[in-house]
Design a binder for these strands. Structure first.
Lengths: 201, 201, 201, 201
DNA sequence: AATGAATGAGAGTTCATTCAT
DNA sequence: AATGAATGAACTCTCATTCAT
């Protein structure tokens, strides 16, 4: 019933298309990219795409799925920090950096763009990535919150603020900010310091 | 040379179109909206749009210009905080909230989406809104940085982190986060507290 | 009933529009010219055009009418040649040259272009200009035909060949032929010589 | 690398579209014809046109190319006249007649019309058809010119007059002249006689 | 499974013409 | 009579998707 060789072939083609699409999307954006562009880049016929994907949007979903896999794979180390607050924060902050320092940055731009507009994609991102991450953080920082008399809601909001900071910094970078571009590697440290110690009064 | 009545009529029609476009864009997104949709919503003929805008994209730019006007008008109070750090931070954080609590939220989504993909719009946002805001903040916090032995670069990065946090929180809200939706009014306080005092160790 | 001042005003406006239209048509062609172009050039409002012309095509007709007036005015000298064959031929050949050496050349291009496609205009040209001219020539050359044993039909065809030569030379000029451009003034003489004496065997 | 079956299919479709376009253009003119008209006439979808032509104008160019091929193919016999003046003239005059006696006549009208207005097309016609033809004639009549003491320039102008006569006669025919229509077959003889012997004094 | 030609709905935009002022 | 904003039909061209081979 399940032919593993078949499956491999399918997976290979699927990835081939996803790679091509990711490359062209990153260059031109989702809407400006035609299925013809994708096919050409993948070195296949336009029609072949539709053997593996029902829709141009489905390709974007596919790209998203792969990104998700990467992100989730990376959140394992977070579970190994074992309670030490500064380490937890630092780890939280450093991850997205590692993931996106590669060429995925341009792609993130596209996915984010489409996410703002496509409810389904937005839902997928929230349910499958953002929410689990936030929940994980809540769990890990629960003790700390108790120690510091932080209400559960306050904790949740704080965590959202931290997560938001990460996302916001990436967007500012995308916007073309030179300062962030020039000191991108030190950003996690600065951010971690800010989060832990505050800016002072 | 300048007929004020004419100008008013032009301004009125322009705004009428902008309002209609904003509404439809917010509902369906920029690409999914047709010029026909806009015309219908505005109660005018499709061709009339092109008396006031050269291009569908120009309408989006027009929307952006109006948003800019609002944002800049609101940044005046920031200059009146007169050096008190907590007040500065709190003011910085509270503004976007005021601006966007209305229906502009959905619109912000669209503009952001297009910004990720449209270089011109991105440039406009960065040059005309983000950069001036960041620069203003730098000026206001310069003294504080000196007192706390913060290098100019560290200050710049910190400010970017704070600004990023604001933007990130809005995006998380857009993503559909219930916690943020339910406690949206207390977010500025929580965020300000986090920035000023830190999360602790 | 007939107010002469009114009529003058109307004639003036009509000509103003016709001048403007002729100029723009000559530059950009009939289809590429918009009523807006014409209005701008004439220094009037777009709507005003329709007080004097029912249609954009009607303007072209108007231009044609004025050209006709010029051409017919010029054919008077032809009647004064008084039978001398070489003079007749030379006169026939020289006229169009005089008319078109001015800026009308570009305009002729446009009218010809539209004539090829617009039956009404074509008919007007044939009935009001070409046919009368051919008939006039037939009358004037009737004696000569008899003397040379030329059948009436042969005469008619010969006349059409001569008239065709004139038109064809103008078209070749329009096509951009350098030789004709450089020796445009001597063309009537060469042509007359060819018609009268022939090219030889 | 070159698949002959593919090429045939492409050529077939291209011609199918060209035929349809030629027919509709001839009926309604270039501008009055819509791509929809062409598609309908060709029995294909509108979009299919654009697999074979980049532009509506490109279709006109394609038609022109085919006309060119016909004309050039027909100019071979001219080279075989072997110096005999009357034969040369007669051959020169008879050719266009053969080419255009079919339904191409209406089409010639359209191409001419557009040529008056479209610089590119005009250039193509001049460089690829008219100029080569004129040059060929110059070569063939060089000896004759010398014998009759005709300067090179006079020869060139004379040839242009003859070529112009042909074109002019066709235009007069297009204009609806009954005489030419009724005696179209004898026109080349009359014209040749006129050219060779002249009209007399 | 792969191809790529064919499809046709639909998009943005133009512009001759109308009409309220 | 003059204006010029408004109109909306109509245009060319694009492109995601289908389907015969």
């Amino acid at each position: 019933m399940i032919d593993p060789i078949q499956q491999q072939r399918i997976a290979a083609r699927t990835n081939q298309i996803l790679d091509a699409a990711a490359a062209v999307f990153a260059e031109k954006g989702f809407h400006a990219t035609t299925t013809r562009d994708i096919a050409r880049r993948a070195g296949i016929a336009e029609g072949t795409i539709y053997t593996y994907f029902t829709t141009k949007t489905a390709i974007l979903m596919g790209i998203f799925e792969r990104m998700k896999a990467v992100v989730l794979a990376d959140s394992i180390p977070l579970e190994a920090t074992d309670g030490d607050m500064p380490t937890i924060i630092r780890t939280m902050l450093q991850h997205p950096w590692t993931d996106l320092k590669t060429d995925n940055f341009a792609l993130f731009r596209i996915v984010l763009s489409e996410m703002m507009v496509n409810e389904e994609l937005r839902g997928m991102y929230y349910t499958q990535i953002l929410e689990p991450t936030l929940t994980l953080a809540e769990t890990m920082l629960a003790d700390h919150a108790v120690r510091h008399n932080l209400s559960p809601t306050a904790l949740k909001l704080t965590i959202r603020a931290v997560a938001g900071m990460i996302m916001g910094l990436m967007i500012e970078h995308i916007m073309g900010d030179r300062i962030l571009a020039d000191h991108w590697d030190t950003v996690p440290d600065i951010a971690a310091d800010l989060i832990i110690n505050g800016f002072g009064t």
